[in-house]
Design a protein around this nucleic acid. Structure first.
Length: 866
RNA sequence: GCCCGGGUGGCGGAAUGGUAGACGCUUCGGACUUAAAAUCCGAUUUCCGCAAGGAAGUGUCGGUUCGAGCCCGGCCCCGGGCACCA
C-alpha cells in the first residue's frame, strides 16, 4: 500500500463524518476519476442533465439521478471501460438576472457563488466526476462556441428575424417564450402577461421536423417521451386545396385539410381573424361586424382564445367561395377557432365529420352534409350520429361514393392536383423556435445591423458567412441587414451596464450601453468603436449591435459535446476528442425536459452533423428519466409546503453513503416516490452492521474475517447470487433490488462465524459503486491492496449459485397443498410419487383420479384431479 | 376530450405465467442495561382457531390457462402529457 494509506481513522466505530471527507479529499488530490483516454478500452460516456445552479442550493432530486449515473460510472470502470462522467453548470438564467436587478451586482458574481455552493454540495456526495472537464455556460470560453454555432445556423439560413406576437410581461418588462407562460401567467413569478409584437430571432427548427420525427425510431428512450416529441412535432398529411372566390382578382382561398375525402361535405369555410384576405373578403354590409370581431380577437390572449373558448364564435364575411368538387357556393366566415399559425390559416369546414366544425355549424345554423358512413352501416346515412369521425366509405360524393375514405383521400387529392387546384401537403404543429430574449444575462447574439447600402457593399467579401437570403427587417421605413460578427472576435462578451433592468422598450439592458450598441464597425475585423467618436476610415460602417441575447436553452444544446474536450480553443471540441468519446451512451435527467431541451439539442446536433462536425446524427442514444421524489406527505416538495428535504442535512445526520443508498433504495429509479424520513435509518443500519461484522475492536479486520477460510456452502451461494444480481441489476438500472440483495448478503454475513477475506472483499467491491467511501475505508481496514474502485469487478461462479436441493411445491388443481425439499433435477415420476406420499397432499387426492400432471422441475408439481 | 403510466400489507416496495408480500420502515414481544438509547433475537396481510391447521386476499367485473399481481376485454380511481393544429 502506497502513500496515502496511513490510517487517519483508527476508530472502531463507523464514523462517516471522518471517513467521507477523507476519501473525498483523497479522490480530489489524486484526481482519481479523470477520464482515461486509453483507446484500448471500450468507452462509456454517462451524462447527467447539468443543473441550473440556483441560489436555493441542491434539491434532493438532483442527487437521485446523479447517484444512479455515479453507480453506473463506477461499475463500468470496474468492468474495464474508460468512463467519461462529467458535470457542469447551465448557469445563464432569469433568477440570477433578477437578483442582479435587485442588488445591482453583476449576475456573474451571484452565479459564481451559486456554482461554488453547488459544487461543494455535489462533491460532498462523493460522485466520481472528472472535475477537470467542468463546463460553465456563462464562461466566455464556453459561450464563444455557443455563439459560433449560432453563426453556423445563421449562415445556413436557419436563423432569421421576424416580427411576431410574443408574450410580453409588463411586470418583468421582458418577453417570455410560450413554455414560460402557464395559464396566462409567467411561469416564474406568476405575473400577468399580454401579447405584443416584437422583432425576434427565430431558428428554423421546422426545416428539420421530418428528421427529428424519423430519428426517434432508433432511439432507446422511454416510449412516452418519444410519443411526446412525436406529438409535439405533430406531423399530419393532407392536401392544400384552392377554393375559387367570386372576385377572381383575389386569387384562390387555399386551405389545408387532412381529409380531402370529405370535400363534398364542405358546407362553409373559415379564415382566421388575422388571415391576409379577411379585409378583401369582407363586404360593406359585414364590414362593421367583421372589424369588431377582429378587434375583439386581437385583444384576447391565447388563453382566452383556446382554453376559455368553450363556445365558438365567428362572423360571416359576406363572401362566398366555390367548392372545387361540386361547384357549390359556400359562405366564408371569420372565426378564431382557426389559427393563423397552422396550415394556411383557413379551413374548409366539414361539420358532419369534424367536431369543431359541427359545433360551429350548429351554433350558426350552417348546413351539415354527411359524406362518410361506417362500413358496417346498412342504411344511407340515416340514423348516423354526427359528427362522425370514424372509419367508413363515402356517400353523396359524385364519382367517389362507395370508396373507403383512405382511398377517396388519395383519389380526390390526385384528381384535384391534376386540375391544378390542390397539392398533397404535410403540416407540422412544430413552430420555429423563438431564440431571443430581451434580457442582459444571456449569450449576446453575434450580429450587427447595418443599412442596405453598407450591406451591399460588404456582402460580397463575406461570402459563405452570409445566408443566401439576407436577414433583414424594416423600421421607420428603413431596411436593416444582419451581418455576422467574424468568428475571430468571438466570444462577444457582455459589456458592463449601469442597470440590469431591461430597457423597458422591449429591448434588453444592452440597448442602454450606447457606446457598445451604436458603433462604427469594421466588417473585416469585426472590431467596433463608439459611433460617438469619429469614423476611423471609409472601410468602417455605421452599425447597431443586436441587443437580444440567447435563451437559456442555447448553452444546454451542446454541452455534452464540450465535455469531450472542454478546454479546446480552436473548436467546440477537437475531431479526435469527438471520435474518442462520441455521444453519451446514457443520458439521465428529469422528464420535464422530455420535449423542449431534448428536441432543441437534437436539432442543433443534426445541424452539426450536417456540417460534418459530429460523427452521429443523434446526440442521446439512450435516455432515462428519474422519477420525482415527493415530500413525506406525498406532495411535490416546495418551500411553501415545508416538506423540502435537504441533502446537506442528511449528509450531516447519516452520511453521504447512507443518503446515496437510500435514494436508490426508495423504489424504482423511474418511479415517483415519497420521501420517508425513517427509511434512511434502514440503510444506515445496514452499513453500521456491516462495519461491525467486518471491522474489529482494533479498527482492523474483524476476527471472523479470515484469510483463506473455507466459506459455508450456503454463504457462498448467497455471495455468488449477490455478485450475479448486483451486476445484472446495475446494468438494468434496478438499483433498489440490488441493494435488497446486498442486505440479504449482509444478513447472511452477520450469521456466519467465519468468512474468508476474499468473500468480504468481493462484497465490498459490489457495494463500492453505491457506498464508495464506506467500501474504500473497509477495504483498507482489511488490508487489501490498492483501492476497491480499482479492482476488477468480481465474477460470480454459476456453480456456486446453484443449490443441490430445491423446494418443490405440490399443487392440486392449482392450489398450494404442500412442499418438500427435493434434489435438483428430480424426474417427474419421482416427484409424483413424493406428492402422493405427502401427508398434506394425500387428503386432496383421496378418491380422485389424476387426469393431468404439470411438472416444472424445481418449481411446482401440479396434479389436476377429477 | 385525446394519448400515456399506475392501483399489491399500517408505509416504501419485491415477485422469467409457477409458494404473493423479498428487502426495508413501522409496530409489538423478548434479551442486554440501575434505566434509557443503541444493539441483538423473534413476530408483524386479513379472518377463524388454544394449537395443529384452514379460509380469503394484488382497484373492480368478466375471460384465457393445469395455474393470473403478471396475458385479454369492460368499468372505477389516481398521476403525467397534450388540448380548437383542421
Amino acid at each position: 500500500m502506497a502513500g496515502f494509506t496511513q490510517m487517519v481513522t483508527e476508530g472502531k466505530d463507523y464514523d462517516f463524518h471522518e471517513i467521507e471527507p477523507r476519501w473525498q479529499s483523497f479522490w480530489e488530490q489524486q484526481r482519481s476519476f479523470r477520464a482515461s483516454e486509453d483507446a484500448g478500452k471500450p468507452k462509456y460516456y454517462v451524462l447527467d442533465m447539468f443543473p441550473y445552479p440556483s441560489g436555493a442550493g441542491l434539491h434532493i432530486g438532483h442527487p437521485e439521478g446523479y447517484t444512479a449515473t455515479d453507480i453506473l460510472a463506477r461499475y463500468k470502470r470496474a468492468r474495464g471501460f474508460r468512463v467519461l462522467h462529467p458535470m457542469g453548470w447551465d448557469a445563464f438564467g432569469l433568477p440570477a438576472e433578477q437578483h442582479a436587478v435587485k442588488t445591482g451586482t453583476h449576475p456573474a458574481a451571484n452565479t459564481q457563488n451559486n456554482i461554488a455552493n453547488f459544487r461543494r454540495q455535489i462533491k460532498a456526495l462523493g460522485f466520481s466526476y472528472d472535475w477537470d472537464r467542468e463546463v460553465d455556460t456563462t464562461d466566455p470560453r464556453y459561450f464563444r462556441w455557443t455563439q459560433w454555432i449560432f453563426l453556423q445556423l445563421f449562415r445556413r439560413g436557419l436563423a432569421y428575424v421576424d416580427e411576431r406576437p410574443v408574450w410580453w410581461c409588463p411586470e418583468m418588462r421582458t418577453v417570455l417564450a410560450n413554455e414560460e407562460v402557464v395559464d396566462g401567467r409567467s411561469e416564474v413569478g406568476g405575473f400577468a402577461v399580454e401579447r405584443r409584437n416584437l422583432r425576434q430571432w427565430v431558428l428554423r427548427i421546422t426545416a428539420y421536423a421530418d428528421r427529428l420525427l424519423s430519428g426517434l425510431e432508433g432511439l432507446d428512450w422511454p416510449d412516452s417521451t418519444k410519443r411526446m416529441q412525436a406529438s409535439w412535432i405533430g406531423r399530419s398529411e393532407g392536401a392544400e386545396i384552392d377554393f375559387g372566390l367570386e372576385w377572381p382578382g383575389l386569387g384562390p382561398l387555399t386551405v389545408f385539410t387532412t381529409r380531402p375525402d370529405t370535400l363534398f361535405g364542405a358546407t362553409y369555410m373559415v379564415v382566421a381573424p388575422e388571415h391576409a384576405l379577411v379585409d378583401s373578403l369582407t363586404t360593406p354590409a359585414q364590414r362593421a361586424a367583421v372589424d369588431e370581431y377582429r378587434r375583439r380577437a386581437a385583444s384576447k390572449s391565447d388563453l382566452e382564445r383556446t382554453d376559455l373558448a368553450k363556445e365558438k364564435t365567428g362572423v360571416f364575411t359576406g363572401s362566398f367561395a366555390v367548392n372545387p368538387a361540386n361547384g357549390q357556393r359556400i359562405p366564408i366566415w371569420v372565426a378564431d377557432y382557426v389559427l393563423t399559425g397552422y396550415g394556411t390559416g383557413a379551413i374548409m369546414a366539414v361539420p358532419a365529420h369534424d367536431e369543431r366544425d359541427f359545433e360551429f355549424a350548429k351554433r350558426y345554423s350552417l348546413p351539415v352534409v354527411a359524406v362518410v358512413e361506417p362500413t358496417d352501416h346498412s342504411s344511407n346515412g340515416h340514423g348516423l350520429t354526427l359528427p362522425y369521425t370514424g372509419d367508413g366509405r363515402l356517400i353523396h360524393s359524385d364519382g367517389y361514393t362507395g370508396l373507403a375514405w383512405q382511398e377517396a383521400k388519395r383519389r380526390i387529392t390526385a384528381d384535384l392536383a391534376q386540375k391544378g387546384v390542390a397539392r398533397a401537403s404535410v403540416n407540422y404543429k412544430l413552430r420555429d423556435w423563438l431564440f431571443s430574449r430581451q434580457r442582459y444575462w444571456g449569450e449576446p447574439i453575434p450580429i450587427v445591423w447595418v443599412g442596405e447600402q453598407d450591406y451591399r457593399r460588404v456582402a460580397a467579401s463575406l461570402g459563405e458567412r452570409l445566408p443566401k437570403e439576407p436577414v433583414s427587417f424594416s423600421q421607420d421605413g428603413a431596411l436593416f441587414y444582419a451581418l455576422p460578427v467574424p468568428e475571430s472576435v468571438l466570444p462577444l462578451e457582455l459589456p458592463p451596464v449601469q442597470s440590469y433592468l431591461p430597457s423597458g422598450t422591449g429591448e434588453s439592458a444592452l440597448a442602454n450601453v450606447t457606446d457598445w450598441v451604436d458603433i462604427w464597425y469594421n466588417p473585416e475585423t469585426g472590431v467596433g468603436q463608439p459611433a460617438s467618436g469619429p469614423r476611423p476610415s471609409l472601410q468602417w460602417v455605421r452599425a447597431r449591435r443586436e441587443t437580444n441575447t440567447m435563451p437559456q436553452w442555447a448553452g444546454s444544446c451542446w454541452y455534452y459535446l464540450r465535455y469531450t474536450d472542454p478546454a479546446d480553443t480552436r473548436a467546440l471540441a477537437s475531431p479526435e476528442a469527438l471520435q474518442l468519446w462520441g455521444v453519451p451512451d446514457l443520458y439521465v435527467g428529469g422528464a420535464e425536459h422530455a420535449v423542449l431541451h431534448l428536441l432543441y439539442a437534437r436539432f442543433w446536433h443534426k445541424v452539426l452533423f450536417d456540417l460534418g462536425i459530429v460523427p452521429t446524427d443523434e446526440p442521446f442514444r439512450k435516455l432515462f428519466h428519474q422519477g420525482m421524489i415527493l415530500g413525506e406527505d406525498g406532495e411535490k416538495m416546495s418551500k411553501s409546503r415545508g416538506n423540502v428535504v435537504s441533502p446537506d442535512t442528511l449528509i450531516a445526520s447519516h452520511g453521504s453513503d447512507s443518503l446515496r443508498l437510500y435514494l436508490m433504495f426508495l423504489g424504482p429509479l423511474e418511479a415517483m416516490k415519497p420521501w420517508n424520513p425513517r427509511g434512511i435509518e434502514g440503510v444506515h443500519r445496514f452499513l453500521q452492521k456491516l462495519w461491525r461484522d467486518l471491522v474489529g475492536e482494533d479498527g482492523r479486520a474483524h476476527p471472523k474475517v479470515v484469510e483463506g477460510a473455507e466459506d459455508a456452502p450456503e454463504f457462498q451461494r448467497v455471495l455468488h447470487e449477490t455478485l450475479r444480481k448486483v451486476g445484472e441489476d446495475i446494468e438494468a438500472m434496478r438499483f433498489n433490488t440490488a441493494i435488497s440483495q446486498m442486505m440479504i448478503l449482509g444478513n447472511a454475513l452477520h450469521k456466519e462465524v467465519r468468512v474468508s477475506r476474499a468473500a468480504a472483499l468481493s462484497f465490498l467491491q459490489v457495494l463500492a459503486p453505491f457506498a464508495p467511501h464506506f467500501a474504500e475505508e473497509v477495504w483498507e481496514r482489511l488490508g487489501a491492496p490498492g483501492r476497491a474502485a480499482d479492482a476488477p469487478w468480481p465474477a460470480f461462479d454459476a456453480a456456486k449459485v446453484a443449490a443441490s436441493e430445491v423446494r418443490l411445491v405440490f399443487q392440486v388443481n392449482g392450489k398450494h397443498r404442500g412442499d418438500q425439499l427435493v434434489p435438483v433435477g428430480l424426474a417427474q415420476e419421482a416427484a409424483v410419487a413424493l406428492a402422493g406420499a405427502h401427508a398434506k397432499v394425500t387428503p386432496f387426492l383421496e378418491g380422485k383420479r389424476v387426469v393431468k400432471v404439470v411438472y416444472v422441475p424445481g418449481r411446482i408439481l401440479n396434479l389436476v384431479v377429477a
